[in-house]
Nucleic acid binder design. Structure first.
Lengths: 338, 338
DNA sequence: TTGTAGGCGTTATCAG
DNA sequence: CTGATAACGCCTACAA
């Protein structure tokens, strides 16, 4: 495991360690020839400055942490993809943490990150609890934090989100225009910012068209695939909505499965629309009308924002909010039938 | 950004840094009371041992690197999920790198990892080039490496794969039994281990049923969505296969899109089967017959293997090969039609 | 332009 | 059981 270090490289070149070190920094004075000689030799001996020693010395890690609720999810994997790209451009590395929607893990990750491992954090929250105070420790220590998509309203830090209210409004409006009057709203946690905002769009769209709001039609779902399946089957049988609006992708799939089981025809008996980043939504049976968030771009913007904070903390207002537009893409699952 | 350090904590407790340090290591001698007093104070002041200093001192990072071709892919995100879980259990962190199927990036990531950043690497290769020698540097330095799924045959290191040959054989056999005689095999890179092995299963299945192999039916696809679309449309029009077997998920989707465009009916005119980790394959139109790899489990096994190497390098044979079984799940896309 | 020396925060060794 | 000290590898004043 013995990696060559700066001392050995210096000795091999008959130079001092400082000179060698300088060859790897951009700023310092060093003659061009010496620098080239050093870099050539370094390559030959496969020397690379030890990352931990540099970090210890420089007090920064060139690493950012990304915390997401889940990895096996189109939205998050695309967002991470965007973050990774920007990070790579900037010469940063990314650490990935999945909370699995578990509040304890979220707290634990954040705590661990206080040890200097990362220079900043990009996070989409689990939303499982109400005490977010642990995040303020970050602020005290000035570990820059950027939220994306799923945020805590009570924590003041820059965020990248989509126009959730407006897109929910249009989603509900779209269903109404397609003839739905009993529209169920499916949500995982209606207290989490995202569930709340999206619900408000739904409520206001109903109001606009004078459809009374019925809170029986707001269905609280869980993170468990099995539970959702029975919740939804029960709901479809007993409440018999003519439209379903799902606040997260997973619930749209669950709705499809439930409809298959119950032989409910989409879109004839039931129209379905959902937030989703699924790239193959056109291939579903029937193709799914989606509100599609620009997932990769959200990641890109979040990363850009974080790097801006890292470069100059004062250049970014803590209340900064980047809002990107989602797109409503109409497909068969909400088509009018004769 | 000032984090409290061990010195300050020691001073606050009127103890030496060594004693404080001991409270955070498991092995060392220290009285129970002192330890508790230290940990309590540490919590109060929110002290955590600086990760970079520890690493520098201990010469290990408690971090593993995961290199994959792409992130926005069901197989890899599920595999990473599995890796993440095991890593967390072991108290390790994971760094993520996406090569985007770019050989240069792959080489560059590997080189960078020589600086002590990670204690080991779990990797699924891009397969874009033939010179894999750069990986041998790892071996020289003994940076443990585990391959999963997409491997280089010429690099000797432990690997976790699936029974690709057998599952390809059954996939092709399944198509044949459903009445196909002109089966196209779609592949991204037929020289990469995985494309090659899977092709062999296809070829041997044809042979078993005395169907002559026609290399016109082996279709080389690319990583570009657009290019594939036209390649596949051309292929479907000109070669008119009655079955398609795709070696990667993406190509099954591309086939569906092409069929939609050309109004080719699946499964009536064309039967489709593909390697895929898509959880919602049943929801496709028509539902897709898949060979499903145990993606999460592959990640778990790869991580386990790597940790075993980290704990005791000699305990793992470099030729170690963990083979997991994929499952052939029959759905509508390969059904016989009247 | 190059070299010397001290310290980043931690932990292992050794002494008490 | 606890304390002092040196070292991990690197970078930056400062000196030459």
């Amino acid at each position: 495991m013995h990696n060559i270090n700066i001392k050995e490289l210096a000795k091999a070149l008959d130079l001092s360690t400082s000179t060698v070190s300088r060859a790897f920094r951009d700023n310092s004075d060093i003659s061009k020839e010496t620098k080239e000689r050093i870099l050539a030799k370094a390559k030959e001996l496969n020397y690379q400055p030890n990352h931990y020693a540099s970090n210890l010395r420089e007090q920064r890690s060139k690493t950012i942490a990304v915390i997401v609720p889940e990895l096996a999810n189109n939205f998050f994997s695309q967002a991470i993809h965007g973050i990774e790209r920007i990070a790579r451009e900037k010469g940063y590395h990314i650490l990935i943490y999945a909370t699995e929607d578990d509040y304890e893990k979220e707290v634990s990750f954040i705590h661990h990150l206080h040890n200097g491992r990362a220079d900043g954090i990009i996070m989409s929250v689990s939303g499982e609890a109400n005490d977010h105070n642990y995040l303020n420790e970050l602020a005290n220590k000035r570990l820059p934090l950027v939220f994306f998509d799923r945020v805590y309203e009570d924590i003041i830090t820059p965020r990248v989100i989509t126009n959730d209210y407006a897109s929910s409004f249009s989603a509900a409006e779209h269903l109404i225009k397609q003839g739905c009057t009993r529209i169920a709203y499916l949500v995982i946690n209606k207290n989490l910012s995202i569930g709340k905002t999206r619900m408000q769009g739904y409520i206001d769209a109903l109001a606009k068209y004078q459809i009374p709001f019925d809170d029986q039609l707001v269905i609280d779902c869980s993170n468990s695939y099995k539970k959702n399946h029975s919740i939804l089957k029960k709901m479809l049988r007993e409440i018999q909505p003519d439209g379903v609006f799902t606040s997260v992708e997973r619930l749209a799939f669950a709705t499809y499965y439930a409809c298959y089981d119950l032989e409910i025809q989409v879109p004839k008996d039931l129209k379905v629309i959902g937030f989703s980043s699924l790239e193959i939504a056109p291939l579903l049976n029937p193709s799914l009308t989606t509100i599609t968030q620009p997932a990769t771009e959200i990641g890109v913007e979040a990363a850009r924002l974080l790097f801006k904070m890292l470069e100059d903390p004062s250049s970014v207002d803590v209340n900064k909010k980047v809002v990107l537009d989602s797109k409503l893409i109409k497909r068969k699952s909400t088509e009018k039938t004769a």
